[in-house]
Amino acid sequence: MSLTLEQVLRVAHLARIEVNEVEAHATLGRLNEIFTLIEEMQAIDTKGVEPMAQAQDVAQRLRADRVTESDQLAQRSAFQAIAPETEAGLYLVPKVLE
């Protein structure tokens, strides 16, 4: 299996990553190399092997349902100090409407 240039541009659009034509071609080449590698791996017989969802064989640790935050106003100020634009506590972004 190999990708087309259109697929690369589409995935870039889904992730809102801007790529120019040169970058798109280069990315296509690199992604196809990865697909070649996957094809090689798919030659291995994995019948009867349960797929892993995680590289480590550990279970999820759970936390108690407790609110651990305090002084949220100061925290918000600290976070918003590095935001490009804020207003009335809101983060401002270019208008998005569907």
């Binding site: 207003e87 009335a88 809101l90 401002l92 270019p94 409407l97």
Partner: peptide, 14 residues
């Protein structure tokens, strides 16, 4: 998308 001040025209608040 609404209720922001006039000069924030063209922005959305998050």
């Amino acid at each position: 998308h609404e209720g922001l001040g006039q000069h924030f025209h063209g922005r959305s608040g998050i």
